[in-house]
Design a protein around this nucleic acid. Structure first.
Lengths: 343, 343
DNA sequence: CTGTTAGCGCCTTCAT
DNA sequence: ATGAAGGCGCTAACAG
């Protein structure tokens, strides 16, 4: 296990030239069938592994794909990464992780780093579309580097995206609360300029509309995705002249804060108040009461993203593939919104 | 933004040769101060970025480091990755993730892949040391590829490791339970051939010894790190003729199972029974009752691992650095073992 | 101090 | 169907 074997080594052994070996290895049509077979065999026998760097140097493929996410220590994103890695690794790709830490500057830096590293593709969940990052996104496309969006999308020509149906998620969460008998349903929303939150809000509105419940804008509060913000928002809601009897939160963390506040005020869940979150974080299952939540299937999202990327890479047609995959979310009903027992 | 600028481009512009440019860029001592400065300036101005692949091709550094972990979708590991990435990225390294999925064969595959990718270093938390993976570990060392262990260690010459003091963790968890007035403390342990579980058990024993509480081997049950196993083990413990009044679990998940079982049997926590877990998983804080647990500081562990790696890489001495970093764990006391209220 | 040359491993014309 | 030669971007050895 001293030196790596090169095509020259195997050429020497077979008394042929490296070019021939190269051709045989690449299934070049004009090559003798026996020669080809012979080369393949001895290559395997000598444990030949192509040198990625020599390939990359000539402008070929590097076998690396870059994945850009806000933070890896969130279950949602790490599950996506897991899915991506599990699909791509068997195909010989390595996954390079970049975190933006919610910083748009770092997002641009990361893209530049990845482009400079000549990755074969960039899979990303960007923080937000702004005028700042628009040009760099365009430059990825111009360089013909396959680009895919997951989780968060924006319509850009020739860019595929893998997302969940956030509208549907908002709809079924709200519908479920209505079905449980709630009539004054509040919504903890997120940054309205991020389309996933916008869609969840729309789904919420549509569900109300379909059930003939009037939409009350006082019931919608924009909050950060954390516990404190959720608790604070809930406090506000409870002070309303006609306080709500349920909350659909676009974030599990905010929902957790809501539940803490409700418990602190001695409000019975789910008897007097129901809560549904979004994300199906691990803790939703184990908290007390357990929190109903919308599952976004991050593992599947990751696998799907990887597969669409592979399709795109292997596309030999002379037109671009543009695929918009939308996964269906699923509601997990738990104690926080489960009134069967008292009906 | 058409073509990447090479050292030839900047050489041409300055009417010097590429070699000179290369030297200037690498702070080669024998170079004219003005020439050097000039090169550096125009390089920056032309937005020159060295080509990693050309460097790697000559046997130089690739700027990639491989990280091998069981699974990325566990908070403990993804936090470590976060720490590693945050330290290494600013230094120009890219992090390549490999998951073993608890499969020792894949562990070997991953190492081979990384070696073949000529990574500048391998940072790993291996599943277990066996006769099978011993040779490949040795081969990493032979190839002079910097190797570091985190989380799980084994003494190998010249291999640095970053771990937490599991003995201490076991000790303080148990000591805390004793201080809360528990006298019959059981322990849910893990695979005894994995040294971290062994150490936690030893810490547990030592704490009992130091407090004059006899060790009862019936109180130690080996369980998998999941909820069902924890519940099952607890069921067994409660059936003992002299059942315990506390559990120190080497896993948060098993501890969660224990609490579920205790609650199911109507046993009051912490009044009649205390529980302490290990890992400080996110859910421990939010479950009911919240679970006391040992924090392993995964983020710091990751950062530390990255920094020891950097030290090692930049080591110009002619001797190997071997660093064994041991982080101190910390107990987070929560409701499941907090009897202040009733004292 | 700086220019010249060769080569890392591979592929790709151009010949043969 | 195969061999010979050049080059991807860079560095290192050898000259000057």
């Amino acid at each position: 296990m001293s030196k790596k074997t090169t095509i020259y080594d195997i050429a020497k052994k077979l008394n042929i030239t490296a070019a021939t070996v190269s051709r045989a290895l690449n299934n070049n049509p004009k090559i003798g069938a026996k020669t080809c077979k012979l080369v393949l065999e001895t290559a395997a026998q000598m444990n030949y592994k192509p040198n990625k760097f020599a390939l990359a140097l000539q402008g070929g493929k590097t076998g690396n794909v870059g994945v850009i996410i806000p933070r890896i220590d969130m279950n949602f994103f790490s599950s996506i990464i897991r899915g991506i890695e599990e699909e791509l690794q068997p195909k010989g790709y390595q996954v390079i992780i970049c975190q933006t830490r919610e910083d748009e500057k770092r997002e641009i830096e990361n893209i530049n780093t990845l482009l400079n590293a000549q990755v074969d593709g960039i899979l990303m969940s960007f923080s937000k579309f702004t005028e700042e990052n628009e040009p760099i996104i365009k430059s990825i496309i111009k360089k013909n580097v396959p680009l895919l969006f997951f989780d968060r999308k924006k319509y850009i020509e020739n860019v595929s995206s893998i997302t969940i149906n956030d509208f549907e998620g908002g709809y079924i969460a709200t519908k479920h609360l209505i079905d449980e008998g709630c009539t004054r349903i509040a919504h903890l929303s997120g940054d309205p300029s991020v389309d996933i939150y916008e869609s969840r809000l729309e789904g919420y509105k549509q569900a109300l509309l379909d059930s003939g419940i009037p939409f009350d804008e006082n019931y919608v509060i924009q909050t950060k995705s954390n516990i404190e913000a959720g608790a604070l928002a809930t406090e506000k809601l409870l002070k309303l002249p006609n306080p709500p009897d349920a909350i659909f939160s676009a974030s599990d963390f905010a929902a957790l804060g809501a539940i803490q506040e409700l418990k602190a005020q001695g409000i019975k869940i789910p008897d007097d108040f129901c809560v549904v979150g979004f994300g199906n974080e691990l803790f939703t299952k184990y908290m007390e009461p357990s929190l109903s939540s919308i599952d976004q299937f991050p593992l599947e999202m990751g696998k799907m993203t990887a597969n669409v990327f592979l399709e795109q890479i292997n596309n030999t047609e002379n037109f671009k593939i543009e695929k918009k995959v939308v996964l269906n979310p699923e509601l997990h009903i738990r104690k926080s919104s489960s009134r069967q027992s008292i009906r």
